[in-house]
Design a protein around this nucleic acid. Structure first.
Lengths: 199, 199, 199, 199
DNA sequence: TATGAATGAGCATTCATTCAT
DNA sequence: AATGAATGAATGCTCATTCAT
């Protein structure tokens, strides 16, 4: 009888095997041959699991983002104030540990902007919604616990997209933005406005 | 007798002749042949003025952005409050008239993210600084005129990048963001916090 | 306990399972994967029974031709005159029932012309001889029964190949030849010349 | 100013440069590289003039057929009787001089049968009509000159396609058909029936 | 016997770039 | 200055075939 393979798992294995390669090089500069060689599979095998190079980036971003989210979730729970929780939420944009994911995410955004495929749009929309709800939940909890004024709720979308904007701007421009300090500074300034001061 | 040609002007002419083509199609899907045909020049001539396709997008974004800035400047002067001026500032992200520029800017960001060339980084940095200073000037004037609290100054960078973030997010995701209302809503909420209320 | 399989029968079963697929599509456009899937066998299994795609066409033409010959034989016996028998003989070229076989035969001829394999040549030669003898027999009987002049015997080969020529010409050109009427017309004209007129 | 090239002529030149190569090898076994090398052009240049390999065969058949027709026309005029003219007409199928054209024509038929493109159908239809009219003219002249009975007119289409059928059958089968003698024998037998015997 | 996962040779095709005119 | 014919490097992708199970 033929070999039975867990297709989904093997797809992940291939993607993870190419992680370093993808992080280091621009996808356009990589050939299928290189990718296949790196994953120690034949070129044909690559096409059994992916229909093109872009899908590889997609898969990898997906995997790494899930891992990242789990860690982010843990860290947020440890933070004491809502202000700190939000700062931890934004750590993705600058912490060393997420640099591979950031690098891939950058590529992923570029690919999406250049020729949006439905699956990518769907994924991005899901991500956006997921993270947005997350921030919303944190803010809601902050309001409920009496930490924040109710008005904070109106700033969520802007606050969330600010992060994305900072990130993209920091990628395209250089040295104009210091993600860690600029984001934290922004968060502090907003929270100074919306936190309820104890007397 | 040799024809004297204004190189810079001809470069602009070529870029503008390709405007519709570039807006409609993804740059990757366009060939030099198509571009040259559209501009009614020979393929060789294209290379006299541009060293590659990306430079064409670059040139065109540059031209259109200058035109756009002039109009934006006029409109901002007509606005009465700082709150309104900032809203006008953000109109770029949703007004119909700027749609061609937005489309090209999207492509330009993607190209920059995929393989950042120094000239592009420089240009983006200049743009960022230029717009940032502009917003800063508007806020400073608002503070000076007694419209805004001094704290508003601390929110400029975040406010500015929020726009960029909204824009990128709206491109990659669909229907999650309504640029006009989401941006204006955010501006209103921020201004409600930092405007000095008359008594 | 090993399953005993009738190799020849299974080969036929596979070929017949692919009949519609082969009739509808050009063999060059079909992949082994598609074929195997259609026959509900694995790709490896296909190679147990056939050494390549062409052999599949070959097998199927063979099967269908035998079926067709049996029917043709029955019909010819029912025809009353030699003239009618010959017409029935040619019905293959236009009757609806034989359309699948014709379609495959067309493909088979093309394959044979492009890269003649010995087995194909042998098969075609056998077919040619078989049908030629058949026509010869019909004509001989016609002469023996006093229906036809002896000279008819000299026209057999040309008469037979005329059918093949009409067929090929009708495939490559379109609408120039109406196989049914053109063939029958030709048969009638020849028979008018070689039939013995009763006084 | 750029080099101006007679595209149609260059296309012919390339086709003719590949004549031997095409005659010797099956088109499927030839790569564009080989073809380009043979024609002493770059691979890209090949695609400037042809859109695929099949078109090359098409072009060459076209060229050689025109040359062949001119010669055939001359020879037919020299023949004295209609019977001889018809025999000369069929010489294409066996004469040594036409062997290259026959070889290509064989390939061309196969290509047409496998995946008929409109241009090929059109060409084949034109050829069929052209040759058919030619035979018709010869027969008409034979009738007009009192050589042939009027009934000869009814046999033209069958007579013409018999040649095509003999040809195809001779290619696919081996040694069953001797084109020269079989065709001439058939012509003689038909003419014996339709010629007007002098008393 | 049956399978289907793995393979990689092999090729058409594209297109940016050059350069003779 | 302008051109467009010529080029060939570069690569994605296919698919027949194999073979471990």
């Amino acid at each position: 009888m033929a070999i039975i393979v867990d297709k989904a798992q093997k797809k992940k294995d291939i993607a993870l095997a190419c992680k370093d390669l993808l992080v280091q090089s621009n996808i356009n500069d990589l050939t299928i041959s290189q990718i296949a060689k790196t994953a120690k599979i034949g070129k044909g095998t690559f096409y059994e699991y992916f229909s093109n190079k872009e899908e590889l980036v997609f898969e990898l971003v997906n995997i790494l983002m899930h891992i990242h989210n789990a860690k982010k979730s843990e860290r947020i729970e440890l933070a004491e104030s809502t202000r700190e929780k939000i700062k931890v939420f934004y750590e993705f944009f600058y912490e060393e540990e997420a640099s591979a994911l950031r690098s891939l995410y950058q590529e992923f955004i570029a690919i999406s902007l250049l020729s949006p495929r439905q699956e990518m749009i769907t994924f991005q929309t899901e991500c956006f919604t997921f993270y947005y709800k997350w921030v919303e939940k944190l803010i809601d909890e902050g309001i409920a616990s009496g930490e924040l004024q109710a008005v904070a709720k109106d700033l969520i979308k802007g606050m969330y997209t600010m992060g994305e904007g900072m990130f993209v701007a920091s990628l395209a421009t250089k040295d104009v933005i210091n993600l860690k300090s600029d984001i934290n500074c922004y968060v502090d300034n907003i929270f100074n406005l919306v936190e309820i001061k104890e007397r």
